[in-house]
Design a protein around this nucleic acid. Sequence first.
RNA 1: GGGCGCGUAGCUCAGUUGGACUAGAGCAUCGGCCUUCUAAGCCGAGGGUCGCAGGUUCGAAUCCUGCCGCGCCUACCA
Length: 713
Amino acid sequence: MILQLENSLRDALRRHLELHYAAAAGLEIVLETPPRAELGDFASPLCFELARVARRAPRVLAQEIQAALELPPGLDRLEIAGAGYLNFFLDRPALLRRLGFTAALFAQPPGADPLDALAAFPSAPPRPRYKAKVIVEHTNINPNKAAHIGHLRNAVLGDTLVRLLRRRGEQVEVQNYIDNTGVQVADVAAAFAHRGALGGDLPAPGQALESTRNARRGAFAAGELTPWPHFVPRRDSAPPRAACSFDYLCWDVYARISQRYQSDPDARPWRAAALHAIEAGEPPLAPEAHLIADAVVAAHLTTMARINVAYDVLPRESEILHLNFWARAFALLRQAGAIRLEASGKNAGCWVMERPGARIAAAGDASLEDVAAEASKVVVRSDGTVTYIGKDIAYQLWKFGLLGLELPCRRFRPDSAAPAVWMSAVEGEPDAPRFGHAAWVFNVIDSRQSDLQEIVIAGLRALGHEAAARQSRHFSYAMVALTPRCALELGYQLSPEDLARPHLEVSGRKGQGVKADDLLDRLIADSLAEVRQRHAGLGPEEQFALALPIAVGALRYFLLKFTRNTVIAFDFKDALSFEGETGPYVQYAAVRAGNILRKAAAEPGLAAELAAPFDRPAALDAFAADAGLWPLVRLAAGLEAQLEIALESLEPAHMAKYAFALAQNFNNFYHRFAVLGEPDAARRRLLLMLTALVRRQLAAVLALLGIETPRAM
RNA sequence: GGGCGCGUAGCUCAGUUGGACUAGAGCAUCGGCCUUCUAAGCCGAGGGUCGCAGGUUCGAAUCCUGCCGCGCCUACCA
């Protein structure tokens, strides 16, 4: 609502400047929200900027503009403040009408939840910017072990980006790339293959998978676990997650084989042999590796479903290789001269690509050859196998439809409770959608890989795909690390240097890190304990249904409130908090607003009043002029404008901050105004309409963050 | 060595792309508020040389330069 007015005001200002101030050409029209509501609804410091080029005093220019500017409809007046600020005031009663303040609130069949009626209120129409398919690639967890908090940050950021884009009306395809032929899967497959030498009582992978599955099914059938996707223990007799989760089992297997490589040089060839067997499709290791990877993928999808993250398609690396995506890309790269076969130096025998913008530094003791080698990246190893860079260039080309190949797909686990998702396959199903062919691509990958992402984009450029290179975005974010305190809490041994560090990187190889499902389980246990205290009268199922969205809300908000390039130093104390700047705080505000509305709808006299439109213009004007109430209206109506800022800066944290600010303002309102106790009927009606507006916007912004609004808290 | 990022209250972080007398939140600490639409809340207090030094300009936490400190990357791993 506000966004449309803001845009029309910006257009009016631009036209006015073009017409009257030749010097203003190319000047950006900056509109911001004034620090205090009495200063107006939009402010522009453009006269200061204009003063510089027009060589006249800002205040004089402001007065000229004030006298001559024709305000677009919906705006009431323009005031000058300070040294030359332009402060614009909305036609506030008109905005209230557009926001539905005079419409009937609850005209609906009896028995329905009155809050459902809020969906009928006007909201801004979608305004897509890209006007073409957008691919967002996220999650991308190596399918060899359970997901940890670092993976959660990726998935939550990616999923929220998708939600923001879709809300703006963009056509988005969500891809989750599965590296099922890489070193990490090979390591776990090798561990199973050498389980005799590894010691312990590890069964064959198929058997291990079957036994964890049976353990889970048995516990579920016995009523000890909640249904998919959470599988949370209902009783103390329920098996721990580690006993019935194949990805947990693999977590330990991976840690064991990694340690074995460290301590036993004789074990190291296992890895290369496994990689070779997987690539050649040799049984039994290759089919076992596929079994392991697909089972772990299924576990990851379940984990992500717990926090409302879903995908459209899962392209697997095995198809990138076997369907000759790489072979095609390799031919294209050679043809274009983008890669060359190195004849000498440390990369002799490799196909390499120049690092973009690489400069030969004046190196101290490094030889010239080494310095040159550092400026180039290996795309094909001397043994003829392709590196990540090569595969990713092929994948990126396919995303843009530039490879000339289609990716056949089959339904992944169509018989499971999970939502439908497609997975690449050598032979696809005929009714599979046509994936790829996007105009914009966002790769959600942590900032440690920004170097590689730049090289991939340089690869597109080297092939002459300038537009695709420009429209490839590395949506980067900093890693999740552990505070030393948290690492100690988890029982890890730390060196004195580690203890002094601000944060510690998690190491999957050492089996270190906080597993995603463990964290969620703790959050659910904590929120369930709260719910039991507050809603002792509810049955266990209902209590659980309330506790779930609160736990998920806490987790998603925690991961979203940090801006992307802030390293999250993970600490249980902060992550498990439900107070202050948290998801549950925002949910609580929404629930409180809903409670007022439900109570209003339950009072027969009031409900009848609310079912009719509101016709008291004088009361509406007085309400619009109330300086104590307007800031909340202004803030609540600004959702779309905030969405634009969040998308412009690709910063989901901006949306999280907005959600918190709105909740905070509403909580303040909640304490200052007794809505249902308001004696003046007309004013009570308007306070209720404001409550309805805020409830609607809070639920909407929470949904954008992938957080549900619980029915009660 | 080079590249990228960071340095703001005791702690964890925001800061609308250079703007508005007083740099904002949350946590922690201290003090108040439940007979009222749920206290997962509200109100208040203390706490800051925005790493340091220069520069650019009407105006700098924000831009430029140089230092200091920290993190990540700089593999024929991804």
